[in-house]
């Protein structure tokens, strides 16, 4: 058996999510991602079940494992007690750990997840801050949001959920440093920090340098779409 398969099987999410599959299709039939993407949880289960190292690597490099929205609809109905949602989590970790995520468009978007949600968490203990949602990048939110964005501080005072106040209610509070230390310790102990680093490294390897990663990042911030960054290979093909 291949090394990656061995490692996959060590993942507790995989162990809990993967029994034998009946190929009944119940999961794919309810999966919202399967309705809009070329994606099928049943297919993912099958590929894993083959225990074929090459097929697994192919999967880890593909967009597929990133289509899942982690809604867990597939899980409560599986007649064999499988959970494609959990298997996906295990696959994503593996894909990040070995840098395969950077081979796919959806995978590279992990940089966004890391830099926004991940870093917010480490700094503030919150995944998303209202200040992240700039009207420039989210014009679809319209003028109400624009108004709120500009008057956030005073408006939150009116509502009694002030910004940046220790232990106040609401999604913009400051979490005491002592609690933050505990949170960071959990992130370290569970290997999440390592995965975050692996995302930066994997991107650097794929794009060629730290500067390129920043270019990718900037393209995204400015245009709101990472596909506007052209990979070297694509650039050459264009010529």
């Amino acid at each position: 058996m291949g090394k990656l398969i061995e490692e996959l099987k060590q993942d507790i999410q995989y162990q809990h999510g993967m029994n034998a599959c009946l190929n009944c299709g119940i999961c794919t039939a309810v999966c919202p991602a399967a309705e809009v993407y070329d994606y099928s949880p049943r297919e993912v289960m099958n590929i894993c079940h083959q225990e074929d190292e090459e097929a697994l690597i192919e999967l880890l490099k593909s967009d597929k494992i990133w289509y899942c929205g982690q809604c867990f609809s597939c899980t409560p109905r599986c007649p064999r007690g499988n959970s494609a949602a959990r298997v996906i989590l295990a696959l994503r970790r593996l894909s990040i750990r070995y840098g395969y995520f950077a081979e796919s468009e959806k995978g590279r978007q992990q940089l966004f997840a890391k830099r926004v949600f991940g870093e917010n968490l480490l700094k503030r203990g919150l995944t998303l801050l209202a200040t992240n949602i700039t009207p420039q990048n989210f014009p679809e939110l319209g003028e109400f949001w624009e108004y709120y964005f500009e008057h956030m501080k005073e408006m939150r005072e009116w509502w009694g959920v002030p910004m940046d106040l220790e232990n106040s209610p609401g999604s913009h509070r400051i979490i005491p440093e002592k609690d933050m230390e505990e949170l960071r310790a959990i992130y370290k102990a569970t290997g999440a920090l390592e995965l975050m680093e692996a995302i930066e490294k994997g991107m650097e390897k794929k794009l060629g340098s730290k500067e390129e990663v920043e270019k990718y990042w900037q393209t995204w911030l400015e245009t709101g779409d990472s596909r506007n960054y052209q990979l070297k290979k694509e650039k050459e093909e264009d010529k």
């Binding site: 009946l22 009944c24 299709g25 999961c27 794919t28 039939a29 309810v30 109905r77």
Partner: peptide
């Protein structure tokens, strides 16, 4: 059709919409 019934829902006229995957063509239906 090779696919196990995943769920059914009712329409106002009393007919039902069935969701399943045709696993031989790998398509949710």
């Amino acid at each position: 059709i090779r696919g196990r019934l995943s769920e059914a829902s009712e329409k106002p006229d009393g007919s039902l919409v069935l969701r399943f995957e045709d696993t031989l063509t790998a398509r949710p239906m």
